[in-house]
């Protein structure tokens, strides 16, 4: 659509400007994580002291541990609950399905802060001590709807006769579930699990309201550290940014390279 040269030029300039807007803060932060002074604005020389502090800081290690542990457990639980529920829903009567999917939408539609204080009030009135368990329960609760959302469409395209046939041939319902239905909807389960994991890793608001007893995830730690200038955050952020970038690039580039290698092989074989 953008065919003439000026149009192309303007759109390229715009694209670059927007990319700068999106990446400047991140790059800026990474650069200043190597600054030798506390300043986030004046460059005083190269040093790795903030990284040294980061690795010697016990609270940061602990926060990373809790973040990953909660994310892994929440992903496992929400994926299992979500998948089972989605399968059940696909066989349920229309009215029940509608009611449950509508309630299931609530945590996704409600602002985080409303979900968060609801949970906080619940835990407070149940007399549950805020900490690791409450955080895990909250994470499972807000992750599961996304798993269901991702698995449901895969089930819709499924032929019900296949599971039926498996059971006619002597499979127990459990075997039919695990060996027949689950493999067919695996891509949906995978993408649901991935979304659940990232939602959990990224969460701040809900964790902030439901945790206690010194159990902090990375977001809460950054929040409490950010009240004053603190370059260790920049060091921590730089490491996280690097990991995310490497993983994403690998996920996206490796299949492309693989495909290219395969093509090459095929064309080489063709030459012989």
């Amino acid at each position: 659509m953008i065919k003439n040269k000026t149009g192309k030029f303007i759109s390229n300039v715009y694209l670059i400007a927007m990319l700068i807007f999106m990446y400047l803060p991140i790059i800026y932060m990474c650069v200043f994580s190597f600054n030798s002074s506390r300043s986030l604005t004046r460059w005083t020389g190269f040093s790795t002291q903030w990284y040294e502090r980061l690795f010697s800081d016990y609270t940061i290690g602990e926060a990373v541990y809790y973040t990953v542990l909660v994310a892994l457990l929440a992903t496992i639980f929400s994926t299992i609950i979500g998948t089972i529920t989605a399968i059940g829903l696909s066989k349920s009567r229309y009215v029940i399905r509608e009611i449950i999917t509508n309630i299931n939408d609530l945590p996704m539609m409600n602002p985080d802060i409303v979900t968060a204080i609801g949970m906080m009030l619940l835990f407070a009135s149940l007399g549950l001590e805020k900490g690791f368990m409450t955080m895990l329960i909250a994470h499972i609760t807000f992750c599961t709807p996304y798993v269901i959302l991702n698995v449901m469409p895969k089930l819709r395209g499924l032929d019900p006769n296949i599971a039926e046939a498996a059971m006619d041939l002597g499979a127990t319902p459990f075997q039919a579930l695990i060996q027949v239905i689950v493999p067919q909807i695996a891509p949906g389960i995978m993408s649901g699990a991935l979304i659940a994991f990232t939602m959990s890793i990224d969460d701040f608001v809900i964790s902030y309201f439901v945790t206690g007893n010194g159990v902090k995830n990375i977001s809460i730690l950054v929040y409490s550290m950010s009240k004053r200038l603190n370059p260790t955050i920049n060091a921590l952020s730089t490491i996280m940014v690097s990991i995310v970038t490497i993983v994403l690039v690998l996920i996206n580039v490796v299949p492309v390279i693989n495909a290219k290698m395969k093509n090459k092989k095929i064309s080489e074989e063709g030459n012989y």
Partner: peptide, 14 residues
């Protein structure tokens, strides 16, 4: 994919 707090925090320096 980068933590929202970190992304927001980085604007302070700018």
């Amino acid at each position: 994919w980068i933590n929202m707090l970190i992304r927001t925090y980085s604007w302070i320096g700018i």
